[in-house]
């Protein structure tokens, strides 16, 4: 079947999509957007997190056909032109990236948190990131990056 939706502000379509295919597969394999990672395909790791109509979801658990006509934003769409999103800058500055596999999902999920919650507490941050697994960093630097990005946002809203 053919599936079409808006990705990072652009209309995209894909043909010959299998009816049981996931949004993640369509993004990665049919639309040339490999930023969202495929690690578990069962909602456990969060590395495939995208915004669907502005709401963070695991794209591996959305059927491609369910995205028809909707708005999808992936990690590729967080930066504004050449300028990285504040959460991306903070991840780099804090050294919150090691192998990088978990990073795209964490960026999308953390970006959503700091957009919604002006001054997230540590408990808020941990809760928001509870569905994103990282096997490298031990999370401390990720928490530091989210705090940094949130503080900057609170100072310059």
């Amino acid at each position: 079947m053919r599936v079409g939706f808006t990705v990072n502000g652009r209309e995209e379509t894909a043909d010959d999509v299998w009816e049981g295919e996931s949004l993640l597969y369509v993004l990665r394999e049919r639309m040339g957007l490999p930023g969202s990672k495929n690690a578990c395909e069962q909602g456990e790791c969060g590395s495939c997190t995208v915004l669907l109509d502005g709401v963070p979801v695991c794209s591996c658990l959305v059927a491609a056909g369910q995205a028809e006509g909707r708005r999808v934003r992936t990690v590729e769409g967080l930066a504004e032109g050449d300028r990285q999103a504040p959460i991306q800058e903070a991840f780099v500055e804090c050294g919150a990236v090691q192998c990088g596999f978990c990073t795209p999902g964490l960026l999308v999920q953390a970006h959503d948190l700091i957009e919604r919650v002006p001054r997230p507490s540590d408990a808020d941050i941990r809760e928001a990131l509870a569905g994103n697994l990282c096997r490298c960093t031990g999370y401390e630097k990720i928490l530091a990056a989210v705090r940094l990005a949130a503080n900057r946002r609170a100072e310059n809203p």
Binding site: S22, E41, Q42, G43, C58, C60, L61, V62, A63
Partner: peptide
């Protein structure tokens, strides 16, 4: 039927 897909898609993916 599929709603959130959080059960159904796991079955399809695997």
């Amino acid at each position: 039927p599929i709603q959130g897909g959080t059960d159904m898609m796991v079955e399809l993916n695997f």
